[in-house]
Amino acid sequence: MSDPRRPFSLDRYHVSEEYGFVLPDPLTELPSYYKPWMDIAQNLPDLIQAGVLRSRVRAMPLLDTHLLGGHRELRLAHLALSMMTMGYVWQEGESSTVKVLPRNLAVPYWDVSQRLGLPPILTHADGVLANWRKKNPEGPFDMENLELIATIPGGESARGFFMVTLLVELAAAPGLQAIPRVINEMRHRSTAGVTNALEDITQALASMTEALKLMHVYVDPAVFYSVMRIYLSG
C-alpha cells in the first residue's frame, strides 16, 4: 500500500515524463538468433501481396524466447510476432482466415506475451507505442522524420494511421505529467497549484485534438477501418 505522505509519482507505472506511454527509443533489431522473425516482420506487406507469408512462417525454426533480455527486446519481439500473426491470419482476407497458428509462431508468441503481461494479439502497445524510430535521431517528432519499424499492407495510409496515433500519444505526455501535480497540490490544499496543473492538462488535450486532425491528411478512411477491424478482431 502506498504511503499517503509521499509525493504521488507515475514512475511505478512506467510512464515517461517526456514520452508518456510511448516506449522511449525502442529497439529496431533483435539479436541475430531472431533474424528469421525480423526478416518476415519487416517485409510483411510484400510477403502478403505475393501470397507467400504463410509458407514463410511455417518454414521458420522454433526459436527459444529465453534468449531475449530486457523489456525493450521483449517489446520488439512482441511487435514482430504480432505483425506476423496478423498477416498469417489475414493473408487471404476475410474469406479465408485461419483459426490455428503453427507451433513455431504460437509457442514463442505466447511465451513473450506472458513475460510482458500483454495479450497474444496486435495491440496499441505494439503497433503504436513501440513501433517507431526517427530517420534523423536529432530531428523533430513529426510525420517527415518518423518511420515504422514494422507495418501492415496499406502503404502511406497505414504508416499515417500508426504515426498520427503516435503523435497523439506524445501530445498527451505533458498532461500525464500534470496528473501527479494535481494530486500532490490537492494534498497541500494549493488551489493555485491545482489550477496550474489542470491548465496544463487542458492544453495537452487541445494538442492531442490538433494531432488527431492529421488523420484526415495522411489516412485513407478504408485503411483506417481495415486497421480497426484487425484490432477489434482480437
Rank of each mutant, 00 (worst) to 15 (best):
V164M: 07
L47R: 09
H14G: 01
P24S: 14
L212S: 13
I152C: 15
G193N: 14
L76P: 06
E18R: 11
A80C: 08
L53Q: 01
L101H: 10
R187P: 12
T165I: 03
V168T: 07
N136E: 14
T97P: 00
T195G: 04
I149K: 01
T97A: 02
L146H: 01
V89D: 00
S82D: 05
T165R: 12
P108D: 04
N145F: 01
L67N: 05
Y231L: 06
D64C: 14
V182W: 08
H216R: 12
A172V: 09
A211P: 00
A192D: 14
Q49K: 13
F21L: 13
E18P: 05
D111K: 07
R103I: 08
V128M: 14
H124R: 03
S233G: 02
L105P: 02
P221E: 09
V227G: 00
L148V: 04
D39V: 03
R12W: 11
V52C: 04
G175K: 05
D142R: 01
Y231V: 00
D111F: 01
D126Y: 11
L167M: 15
A41V: 02
V217N: 07
G51I: 09
I201G: 00
E144N: 14
A106W: 11
V219P: 06
S226R: 05
K213I: 03
Q49Y: 11
D39M: 05
Y34A: 07
R189K: 11
N104I: 08
W132F: 12
K35I: 14
L44Y: 05
I183F: 13
I149F: 03
G69C: 06
A80N: 00
S55R: 15
L116V: 13
A206L: 13
N184I: 10
T123L: 06
F21T: 02
L146N: 01
H216I: 06
L232V: 03
D142K: 02
W37Y: 06
V112N: 03
N43V: 06
P108C: 13
G139E: 01
F21D: 00
N43P: 01
A50H: 07
F224W: 11
L79F: 10
D39H: 00
L166N: 11
A192S: 15
V15D: 05
A178R: 01
D39S: 03
E92K: 14
A204H: 10
R229N: 14
M143E: 08
D46M: 11
L122C: 10
A172Y: 07
Q177L: 10
R54H: 07
H71W: 02
Q49R: 11
S32I: 11
N196F: 15
R115Q: 10
L176T: 04
E138W: 09
L23S: 09
D11L: 12
P45S: 12
A206K: 10
H66W: 04
T65C: 13
A106G: 00
L10H: 03
L68T: 04
P108N: 06
K99W: 12
R75S: 07
L198A: 05
F161Y: 15
A80Q: 00
I201M: 10
E199K: 15
W110P: 07
E92F: 15
R133A: 09
E144G: 12
A171K: 04
P119K: 08
M208S: 08
P45G: 11
S207Y: 04
F21K: 05
D39I: 03
P119N: 12
D25N: 13
Y218W: 09
A50M: 14
S96A: 12
P108F: 10
S207D: 14
N104S: 12
D3G: 10
S82G: 15
I40M: 02
G234D: 03
